[in-house]
Design a protein around this nucleic acid. Sequence first.
DNA 1: GCCATATTGATAATGATAATCATTAGCAAC
DNA 2: GTTGCTAATGATTATCATTATCAATATGGC
Lengths: 146, 146
Amino acid sequence: MKSEREFFENYLIKKNLRETPQRGMILDAFLKREEHITAEQLYDIVKKCDPSIGQATVYRVLRLIVESGLAREVDFSDGVMRYEHCYNHPHHDHLVCKGCGKTVEVVDSVIEELQKRVAESFGFELTDHEMYLYGNCADCRKKLQG
Amino acid sequence: MKSEREFFENYLIKKNLRETPQRGMILDAFLKREEHITAEQLYDIVKKCDPSIGQATVYRVLRLIVESGLAREVDFSDGVMRYEHCYNHPHHDHLVCKGCGKTVEVVDSVIEELQKRVAESFGFELTDHEMYLYGNCADCRKKLQG
DNA sequence: GCCATATTGATAATGATAATCATTAGCAAC
DNA sequence: GTTGCTAATGATTATCATTATCAATATGGC
């Protein structure tokens, strides 16, 4: 927790940006939350501490957090961007239940390796990827049958 | 080409929908195009044949084409939905060059199998997936170095 | 404390797509 | 071929997440 804050402060200094109470507050709220969060959800949380905060600021700070490397954007194709932790939180992909929206973080090193090889076989240097697995979780399947 | 039209007409009949010149025209324009296309691009093409066509109709027919199974949506995360052929065009994923935007269709049956297994290991039944590999193509890398 | 400059909050703008609604067109039964 | 029912169209407006604008304010080095 401490180190994330320092990390962010270092980023601000490096970019000649200023430390402000809003930035601190938004960062804290983001760090406290372990799961994905949307800009709106974060706005709602932060408003409770400081009702005068503007949602544009939340969007702006969220972008800073991403640029600093503390967060990453996740897009489940439902029209809203979500943000998840990046710091000490290694890369992973997502398994999403189409029924209840539950998500599970997954990694498969073999898949990762194959992705790199596939890209290379077409002369590409892989820099990044997105993988979303959509399906129905055990609970939802049970409900549908029962 | 013939069979795609029949396929679409069958879909319309099955759903009690009507065959209209606009639907025919938009479908034709979509089928003629081999690569991905956006709603806006399709609108521009179709407008040349019939300037009175509305862009809402393009969006509507595009949705019908997807529902019929002739097209599938592709989202390269740039804020615009693209549509690609589905008919006699088996599932594949995409390799996208971050430099020039060039895309390559890729499939790797081992990855596909592993995706299914990963999902199952969390109790999910995989119905669908999205995978986008982002990188730099050989040409773009050469340009950057030269 | 002062000043240059970054930041804020409110609000309007944007851009893709969806909804609305009056008008028009397809088609089955007569 | 007319009628009548219903679906489809085009124009327009709405929506919704995210950005840009801009005047007012706060920050941090001097």
